[in-house]
Amino acid sequence: MTATLTLSRGPAVRVPGLSVRTIATTLAGLIILVLIAWVIAPSLFTSHDPYAGVPAERFAEPSAAHLFGTDQLGRDVFARVVHGTRPAVLSALLAVTIGLVAGSAIGLLAGFFGGIVDGILGRVLDIVLAIPSFLLAVIVVVSLGFQTVNAAIAVGVSSIAVFGRLIRSEVLRVKNLTFVESAYLIGGSRLSVLFAHVLPNTYRSVVALAVLQFGLAIISIAGLAFLGYGNPPPSPDWGLLVAEGKDYLYRYPWVVYLPGLVMVATVLSLNQLSTTIGKDK
């Protein structure tokens, strides 16, 4: 029985009910909900066509008629952002899924079996880490075709190492807890212990990482699209919006900044959610 020197930790500011963290998390949740709505039914949020522009209205400033203004071809920027959410989210989802599934499998096996399995798989992870992710993306896109899907695959492959490393260290931590050893004593085989005890106790941190990686994937894919390694114009890809608008940055800044703001808000919200998931561990 231990009775350690306990120091109570009261919060510095006491506001009944709400804490800064709760407000931030709620806000983040709302933003993500809006984005999900944009993915599912973009036409509900805007009546403008993201592809057809009215040249007479080019470079209109943000107003009630055009929330984010219009771009160089008279297209409503807000409509383009809303319609661009679906490719952005789905491709990021693909990237994270690839990273999560492949990375977790590798990390789980490497951490649990150790020895030579860990040696070989560890080297695989090291190789993936050694290749600059951007270079890998360029290679994949150039070989498979200039589409956002391929950019997503590339981003996913480079994130395998991140997931692999995390889950491997979680497995190493859990593996040595007494309840895992006791599972062997009551007749468990290695595989049953792996799936029945180790996996359920390690996936929580991986979920938190996946949310974080999702935000990163959105940014990476947008970045690749910005450089041309994604869907070609006139697709309303977020990265493309910034790429096309950069020539007019000084005179008509809303064409770049407002889509950029949406991207930043998305990633920050995802980060906040990831922190919240992680804290509940």
């Binding site: 009775a3 350690t4 020197l5 306990t6 120091l7 109570s8 930790r9 009261g10 919060p11 006491r14």
Partner: peptide, 17 residues
């Protein structure tokens, strides 16, 4: 409460306590 008691005497508790 024995550790709490001692911490109180030694003034090692947080200011919110």
């Amino acid at each position: 409460g024995k550790s709490t008691l001692v911490n109180a005497i030694l003034r090692l508790l947080d200011s919110s306590t």
